[in-house]
Structures are given as structure tokens and as C-alpha cells.
Design a protein around this nucleic acid. Structure first.
Lengths: 344, 344
DNA sequence: TTGTAAGCGTTATCAT
DNA sequence: ATGATAACGCTTACAA
């Protein structure tokens, strides 16, 4: 326990050298005789000295800190992505400032100011709504940004994600092949590029299968994805006179919610209603029934985005980078060949 | 896009005032005439000026940043805890630096240096092993620390968690009441206080039930908890001549792993082997079979720890704080009254 | 091989 | 009501 934290000057005084020497010893940035080096290190330990990154950053203009903005770290998709990001940056001595925006543009903008103020060297962002201004704020301070998951169509910014249209097309086609004609779609925020692309894939798959579209089969809600919101909205869907025989859910939380709602309604999956969901869950295979899901390479999305951002920080030009990682449809019992075998 | 970021001096010059005035306008820290205030704000916007928190921190000795060290954010337990922490601190304008230690003391110590250097104002820590030194490092720089989940017995530091002994006792007693006499225990790192307490609860429950203890029924592994490691270790357990009829798993990931292993071995749960696991999963009820679990108030652990830390940062004395939040045993089909109905 | 001193971008203490 | 200016704790030319 000590009254005042030791500074480089205290160390210099105790070691009988200049602050410059201390600095150089600490950073290995010029040759010093072993004797002085020893004296310095001894002083460092004696004083329990820890150099202030703050002061250092002020002069070097580098903070070795980046910002990560996602809607909610509790969404397993983002949990994994963030871990991937952390692994890459940690290896280079960078730290993460974690920001949960809860799909609120206001919160996102607030965080934006903070990150700008903290002089982060880069940002990885899963944008909410038209985040164009937010992104522009960073860019105009020459802070590199890499987008993940979603991409506002207006801006040309490096992006890492998946081909949502294709993945959704494949998924819905799979349901069609199983004999389904009434396929419901469950979304959270419809305005995100991700949702829109997945809906577009859904539409195209139905169109190509000559199945007529019905907007009443599409349900959604605002705010962050939660199991409960999904449950409510799915229940609503089944008040429809022609309820769906299959559900395409746009993310993992929605899938769980849908399954719950179906159980609550006394329907069985897949006999009455099939479910196919976006995003994998590590233990999707152990559900009742095992869930059919579109697996996104979450961890890799994180590491890839982080690597690109790291290169930008190193001065490389990344303006045109765009990486679409492959998805994988993992078919399990929650949708079954033969389609539904029942009513109406 | 601009060559150089604007500084307070640029603003002052453009507004025709001193830097002191700019600072005061920005921070609302003394009265200025509306006219000057306006001129300042106009200059701020014109230059797209964002005050440097770095420089500010250097003089105020406050960083509005705290460190959060957990073993792995992907563990749903910590995901939730971290979200709770973030909510509390975000409300006070603080940021989180997220550190994944992977149960490695080396990584933890490395992160310790970093956090010390970044002059975080506090740390929330789920300690790995004998983190006494690490904790001492913070304390001796008068950086307040709040421990969560685990508590190295040596040190007197504020703590937020649950009564693991009691919770384990209750759980194992439940299995005993169901008729089980051979109860296996699956742990990851056995040395953590959490694991030790849960094992202690297990022991006491068996002792009180006059069931003899067998160390061969306890399996574990080192490193972070993963489903795969748990799977392997559980398979091993069933090579035992007298395999258990029930499994008590010490965390959520282990529970999943155990269930998988049992399935792979061709055994059925709960008919052949019952499972009762620590930590809830939001969708544990939808597993095959629905899982019986000890629910910890994860989010609340986060918010509680954060509130205590926040008070410490505000200068309050928290040295003796210790909060044990209640757990809840949620009984589902994975263990069934009547115990196992089979062999030997 | 080492030291001196000028910043880095703020806040805060005096003055005025 | 406002301004000068000395810190804050480092790094980094430039000297010696």
C-alpha cells in the first residue's frame, strides 16, 4: 500500500539516472550498460513502478485499444465473435472496450463519442439501423472501422459476414423440398441488412418454387432479440387462419422462442410444424427435437474482422476488403422429409 | 477527413478564447456568457473536435475504465455476469476492458500488468488458482477489486457469489432422495474454490446420507471448461466396474458434455443415468431430457459486484463486503424420483 | 553511453 | 467572466 503511485521520475531519482534512461531501459529502445540497466530495474521493483499507459499514449498517439460494438454480448453469435476478436488483438497487446448497444442508435452514438474520446485505434461494429453517421464519425477521425454481420447498403466499409441471401435461399428451399407450402418467417429487427437479406433469400426461394408470398406469414419485432419476444410473436402467427407448417427463424434466440411457442400451443415439432433456424447453437443437437440450423462461422468472423482491422491499424489500405465466409446447413429432426402430414 | 485531429487549442484559437474557457464550456464547470459559449460550441463543431479522454485522464487521474477478468466470455455464466457489469458501469459512464484468462495464471498476470498500466479504476475478477499476487498487485496500487464466483481462501477481498457448499449439498441430497447411491461428480479445474466448495457439499451430502465416498467417482480435467473435455472425462468414468447411476456436474458446459457422453455410450438419461448440473441454461428445459439444474443469479452477480466496485471507486470502504446470492434448484426430467431402475 | 528539455492535450490554480 | 500557465507522466529529438 502506498500513498502515491511511483512515476518515472521517482525511478530515475532512485536509480540515479535520467528519465530518458529509465524509459529506454523499460522499452529496450537503446543500449545501456548492464549496470545502469540493473539499477533501473531494481528501482522499478523497489518502487513497484508501473508505467502509465495513459501518459505514454498521450505522446505516442497510440492507445493499443479498440472498440467493439455489438447489440448484446449475450447473443451467442456475438459472444463467439467477440472471443475471436479478443484472441487476435490480445496477441498483439491490444485491449477491447466492449459496447452493448441494445439495437439503440442512441446508445450506439453515445458509445461512439466515448470511443472517439478514448482515442481507440480502430472499431469493429455490428451496426444498428442506419449507422452511417456513426461510421462517418470514425472515418473522419481516420479511425479504421470493420463492419461485421450487418452492412448498411449506403457505405463502403470493410465487411466480414456471410452471404445471407444465399444461405436463406438454401434453407427455405430445403423446407420446400420437404413439401412445405406455408412457410412462416420470424425476424427481430426487420430493418437490419441481415434480416433484409435473409428475407430476400426467403422470397426468392418461394418465388422459384412458385409458391405465392404472403406478408402475413412474416412476423417481427423491434429491439434486441430475446427468446420471450420471439415466443410472443410466433404465438401471434398461429392465430392466422392458414397457419404455417414450417418456420424459418432468423437467428438462434428466435429459434428457441419459436420452439417454445409451438410447444405451448400444443403443437409438435416437426410433425405439426417444422423449424429451421439461422445461427447454430453448440448443443442444438440435444434439443427436443434436434434443431436444423444454418451454422455461421462465428469465431472466424471475429478473427477475420480483427485481422483486417489490425492490418488497417498497421497502415495498410483495407478500404475494399469484403469477406463472405461460408455457412453450413445442418439438417436435424426439427424439419423432416415428407413435410407435415396433417390438417387442412 | 482531416490531417490532424483538432485539439483544445485549435478550438480556443478559432473561438478567440483561452483553452481554459473551452474546457469550462465543455465541462460546464464555470459560468460563461452565452455568447462565448456559443462561439466555443460553434468552433467545436466546425473542427469536429472530440476532447481527448487520454489527456484528461492524465491530469484528473481518473480513467472511467475498469477491468473485467474472466476465464472465458463464451461460458454462458460469464456472458451474463459481464452483461450485468456493463449495464451498471455504462450507466455511470465507465467502460469495460474485457480479459479472457483461459484459466491461465500467466495470461492473468499479463493482463494484470496491462490493467495496471492503463490505470483502471477498479477490477472485477473471477480468479484463477492462487491469484493472491495478482490481487495484491491491484490492492497495493489502491485499485479496488471485487471477486466473483471464486474466492481464494487466503485473501480478504469483497466477494459476490453463491453458497456453493449449500447448493451442492441440496443438489446431491436430491439425488440421494431419488434413490441414488452411486453418484459421480464431474469437475473441470478442481483447485478453484468453487469446485472445492461444490465437492465439499457433495461430500457432506453423501456423508449425511451414510453413503461411502469413492474418489473414483470424481473426475476432472484442467483448463477452461469445454463440452468436449467433459465428454472425454465422463466416458472414462463409465469404464469403472461400478459406474454411477447419477452424475453431478459442476457447471453448464460439463452438463452438456456429460449428456453427450451418456448418449454416445448408449445409455439413457434418466433411466440409466440421472444428471443434475450446476448453472442454468436459458433453454435447459428443451433438452432431451429437460435438464435439472442449479440456477445461479448470473446477471445479478454481475450487477451486484459492479455496484460494490462502483461504491469503492466513489471512495466508500468496501473491504468487508461479501454477498451470497440465492441459488435455485430447478428439477426437470433428467433426474427422476425412484432413482435408477436397472442393473447391479 | 547518458542527459536535457520540449512536447502530447487536457485540467486546475492563480491572477486579472 | 476570462486568461496564463503549471502540472499530469511519459517519449524522443538533440546534445554532450
Amino acid at each position: 500500500m502506498q500513498i502515491k503511485k511511483a512515476s518515472i521520475r521517482d525511478v530515475a531519482k532512485l536509480a540515479g539516472v535520467s528519465t530518458a534512461t529509465v524509459s529506454h531501459v523499460l522499452n529496450n529502445t537503446r543500449v545501456v550498460t548492464p549496470e545502469t540497466s540493473d539499477r533501473v530495474w531494481k528501482a522499478v521493483h523497489e518502487l513497484d513502478y508501473h508505467p502509465s499507459t495513459i501518459a505514454r499514449s498521450l505522446v505516442t498517439q497510440k492507445t493499443t485499444t479498440i472498440g467493439v460494438m455489438v447489440s448484446d454480448i449475450r447473443n451467442p453469435f456475438f459472444t463467439d465473435v467477440v472471443r475471436g476478436i479478443e484472441d487476435i488483438f490480445n496477441a498483439s497487446g491490444f485491449n477491447l472496450i466492449l459496447c452493448n448497444t441494445d439495437e439503440s442508435e442512441e446508445k450506439a452514438n453515445l458509445y461512439g463519442r466515448v470511443l472517439l474520446g478514448k482515442r481507440v485505434e480502430g472499431v469493429i461494429l455490428a451496426p444498428t439501423g442506419h449507422a452511417v453517421e456513426l461510421i462517418q464519425d470514425f472515418i473522419s477521425q481516420s479511425i479504421p472501422v470493420v463492419l461485421i454481420d450487418r452492412r448498411p447498403p449506403e457505405c463502403i466499409v470493410p465487411f466480414v459476414g456471410v452471404d445471407n441471401i444465399a444461405a436463406a435461399y438454401e434453407s427455405v428451399s430445403h423446407l420446400v423440398d420437404d413439401g412445405h407450402q406455408h412457410i412462416g418467417l420470424v425476424s427481430s429487427l426487420m430493418t437490419s441488412s441481415t434480416a433484409q437479406d435473409r428475407i430476400e433469400g426467403y422470397r426468392r426461394a418461394l418465388r422459384d418454387a412458385k409458391i405465392s408470398l404472403s406478408d402475413e406469414l412474416i412476423v417481427s419485432f423491434d429491439g434486441i432479440s430475446t427468446v420471450v419476444s420471439a415466443e410472443n410473436v410466433v404465438r401471434e402467427l398461429f392465430r392466422h387462419p392458414h397457419p404455417p407448417t414450417a418456420l424459418f427463424t432468423l437467428n438462434n434466440l428466435l429459434t428457441i422462442g419459436a420452439l417454445r411457442a409451438i410447444n405451448d400451443l400444443g403443437l409438435r415439432c416437426p410433425e405439426d410444424v417444422a423449424i429451421l433456424g439461422f445461427d447454430d447453437l453448440e448443443w442444438a443437437s440435444m434439443f427436443t427435437p434436434p434443431l436444423t440450423m444454418v451454422r455461421q462461422p462465428t469465431y472466424e468472423i471475429g478473427t477475420t474482422a480483427a485481422s483486417i482491422l489490425m492490418r488497417a491499424i498497421s497502415g495498410e489500405d483495407i478500404t475494399n476488403e469484403e469477406v463472405l465466409l461460408p455457412t453450413k446447413l445442418i439438417v436435424r429432426d426439427s424439419c423432416r422429409p415428407g413435410g407435415h402430414s396433417g390438417n387442412n
